[in-house]
């Protein structure tokens, strides 16, 4: 993985597999604390205490198509390489929270990457899941709740061509505005 956004995309897939109906993606870039924090919170099936203990082990995957699961270990490595950390909290039947902290100005910190494209891909691929996306850069914040968009759209799908293009512009504009403020 070369970008943090790709790690996020990857970890969110775990939430989807865990049958979450609500997934929160929360990014906070804080210059003062010199930290970039990513929180992914879902209401999926969660993990047992036993599995939680070994979930950072690459050979602990629950998949059946291959024997290794690298999503979590890769994110952990990326975070720890910048003096940061990875924490996972989970409760069976309630959901999971994955928190990754990166050193914002650390030379080894991967770029955040294309968050607009990442969220667009998720919104449109999993239309039935409610996504709450929040990206904070210092004082400025961009927030999207797909439920609000869904309410406007009714049963018109996110993948309808015009809607897709609107969503794409909407997310790109939101992200751009955050970066303009970053002086």
């Amino acid at each position: 993985m070369r970008e943090i956004s790709l790690h996020i995309l990857d970890i969110v897939q775990n939430s989807v597999v865990a049958k979450a109906t609500e997934i929160e993606v929360d990014i906070c870039e804080d210059k003062k604390l010199d930290k970039l924090t990513v929180v992914i919170r879902d209401n999926g099936c969660g993990m047992s205490e036993e599995f939680l203990k070994k979930v950072i082990d690459p050979f602990a995957t629950k998949r059946t198509t291959r024997k290794v699961g690298l999503g979590i270990p890769l994110l952990k490595m990326a975070a720890e390489n910048t003096g940061g950390s990875l924490e996972i909290q989970s409760k069976e039947g309630e959901g999971t929270v994955v928190t990754a902290v990166f050193g914002l100005s650390h030379i080894d910190r991967q770029p955040l990457g294309d968050m607009a494209g990442t969220m667009l891909g998720l919104f449109t691929a999993y239309e039935d899941i409610r996504f709450l996306y929040k990206h904070k850069v210092n004082e400025k914040e961009f927030f999207v709740d797909t439920k609000e968009i869904r309410n406007v759209l009714g049963d018109v799908p996110f993948q309808a061509p015009e809607v897709y293009l609107w969503l794409s512009d909407f997310l790109k504009e939101g992200e751009e505005e955050l970066n303009q403020m970053e002086v």
Binding site: I149, V152, V156, E162, V163, W166, E173
Partner: peptide, 16 residues
């Protein structure tokens, strides 16, 4: 900035 009103217009067009 993109507005939800704009989206509403798109919905009405796309519906059906």
């Amino acid at each position: 900035m993109k507005s939800l009103a704009e989206l509403e217009a798109i919905r009405n067009k796309a519906k059906g």
